[in-house]
Design a protein around this nucleic acid. Sequence first.
DNA 1: CGCATTTACTTCATGCTTAAAATATTTGCA
DNA 2: TGCAAATATTTTAAGCATGAAGTAAATGCG
Lengths: 157, 157
Amino acid sequence: MELDYKHLPEPASKERLRLWLRFLKASRSIEATLRENLRQEFRTTLPRFDVMAALSRFESGLKMSKLSEVLRVSNGNVTGIVDRLSEDGFLIREPVPGDRRASRVRLTKSGLEEFERQAAAHEAWINDMLSVFSPDAARDITNRLEQLEASLQKDKF
Amino acid sequence: MELDYKHLPEPASKERLRLWLRFLKASRSIEATLRENLRQEFRTTLPRFDVMAALSRFESGLKMSKLSEVLRVSNGNVTGIVDRLSEDGFLIREPVPGDRRASRVRLTKSGLEEFERQAAAHEAWINDMLSVFSPDAARDITNRLEQLEASLQKDKF
DNA sequence: CGCATTTACTTCATGCTTAAAATATTTGCA
DNA sequence: TGCAAATATTTTAAGCATGAAGTAAATGCG
């Protein structure tokens, strides 16, 4: 029979790897449910929701480049998603006065209304999935994640 | 001027939504770095790494259906990734005696060696990115994530 | 046995994702 | 002014992801 290493201290790197694996699993599990719910209830996808969420915070819209920066995805990626959302009438590209290369994207009235319904449902789904965390526990973990983000940013330079 | 709501208690659902947004941000940030590193150092991708990681735990290989179950991705998805890894000589499909529909996939010697180098680098990257968490803090968060997973599983039925 | 159902897997259509190349326009400066 | 460099965006090629449809083989039961 094997020795029981379970209660011996693991090297720090193993402990952190274990954390990452759990982290990823939880994240993927929640994301999968969100995708499925968005698909079933609103015939849309997470990337489309993300674009609309970003635009909903800027009444006068965002330039394509700013939009891809906010979402932290590539320019080319945003082009396709915006194309499709435009076809659905949820947003429009407007010319930017004085710069014929650029365009400003903003939600239409219909897009804003649609997004508000999606956002309310989204918040309820998250509240349900994370109900195991009390508001205090949620705040505590949020704080730790903010530390993590800060340390990840710092290492970039 | 607007009232300052910042220090009033937020509804639980807002607190949890905030947690989810931080969670997603951290997860995407770490994943992006992993993808970039895998690409630069090993000319591979996270899905390929995931497939090899899964197979590395089963010396005699896995059937395609079991592989997609373990990875929690669709069957059709696994087909393509396995196709490409096979072309690279990192794994092989073997016939399953007594069932001509099925095939068993396992790492080749070259695939196992390659994976072991990738896994060592992967662990070091994670250790670096999560270094802001002490082993104790890491264990603590891992425990909370396990609670979360358990509660997510339970709600499925 | 015969044939409907189930199982294992691949293919297909569509969309998301990236990096890199291409296009168009603006800016800066010799 | 003229033109090289920078900027804003789209296009392209390749891979990942899904759900659904298709193919082939195995199973089960009347």
